[in-house]
Amino acid sequence: MLPVKLDSYKPLREVVFDTLREAIINGVLRPGERLMELQLAEELGVSRTPIREAIRKLELEGFVVMVPRKGAYVAGISLKNIADVFEVRAALEALAAGLAAERITDEELEGLERIIVRKKKSIEEGDVAGFVQCDMEFHDAFYKASRNERLVQILGNLQDEIHRFRSVSLAYPGRMQDALEEHRKIVEAVAERDVARAQKLAWEHIENAENSLLEAVRGKAAAAGEEGEGLGK
């Protein structure tokens, strides 16, 4: 990681917290990786105090686990955690899809269709990172079209955890193409103002994403010769 840039609008401890949190979300700090205060302080160009404060806050948010007599580690992606997150996500995404089918504008529909085109191009170029970015933009635009600010806020809060899963899920063989087709069908249902179909397709899309993620996680665990439930401990 690069040294943090001081932000005159934020205390140093918050800048450090945001930096470490983003590193975990984006996979720079991987599940199961030990967080060494001195090493992180040197990398970020700060003292150990804001590092220690950030780690404590990350523990409260579930991104870090403290192991007695061993220290702090990036929280693993457990099967239980996956099930909990996707159970909530499926219900909320179905709700968002139904509301979007009722409230979306023609301009927003065109925006979703443009993202679909970009996703197809990412697949053709083998650009996983580009596909992941498009995937995030698609869901953000989709949430906004629901016209429910509280729903957008709740789904936004889930996005950080979802993003930890997204790259693993989409790396599963064939998942990017399947996700593209699923998104295409959802957009068609929304464009036709078919609320029930949009909800059903959105729910199925999240279930398929969860199943791909679970297969990917189990595959990584098997490859590592682990019997544990998930990535990292």
Rank of each mutant, 00 (worst) to 15 (best):
Ile116Val: 10
Asp140Glu: 09
Leu40Thr: 14
Val85Gln: 03
Ile55Gly: 04
Leu112Pro: 01
Gln153Ala: 13
Glu22Leu: 08
Glu110Ser: 11
Lys57Ser: 06
Lys120Asp: 14
Arg34Ala: 03
Ala141Asp: 15
Met36Thr: 13
Gly76Pro: 04
Ile51Leu: 04
Asn26Pro: 05
Leu44Asn: 02
Arg21Met: 12
Ser122Leu: 08
Gly71Thr: 06
Gly98Asp: 02
Asp140Leu: 14
Ala83Gly: 10
Ala145Thr: 07
Lys70Phe: 02
Tyr143Ile: 10
Glu113Ser: 10
Met136Ala: 14
Asn26Asp: 15
Leu95Tyr: 02
Ala91Glu: 04
Glu110Arg: 13
Val128Asp: 08
Glu102Val: 05
Ala141Phe: 14
Met36Gly: 12
Phe63Leu: 09
Leu44His: 05
Ala129Tyr: 13
Leu29Asp: 01
Asp84Ala: 12
Gly111Phe: 05
Ala101Phe: 01
Ala141His: 12
Lys121Ile: 15
Ile77Leu: 06
Leu151Gln: 04
Glu43Ile: 07
Glu93Arg: 04
Asn81His: 13
Gly130Lys: 03
Ser122Gly: 12
Arg21Pro: 05
Leu95Pro: 01
Glu42Ile: 09
Lys70Ser: 14
Ala23Gln: 08
Met136Asn: 10
Leu151Ala: 07
Val64Leu: 05
Ile82Asp: 01
Ala54Leu: 08
Thr19Asp: 02
Gln39Val: 13
Met66Ile: 06
Ala90Arg: 00
Ser47Tyr: 09
Ala129Trp: 02
Glu125Cys: 09
Ile82Trp: 02
Arg89Val: 11
Arg56Met: 10
Asp140His: 13
Leu99Thr: 03
Arg89Gly: 05
Asn148His: 08
Ala54Gln: 08
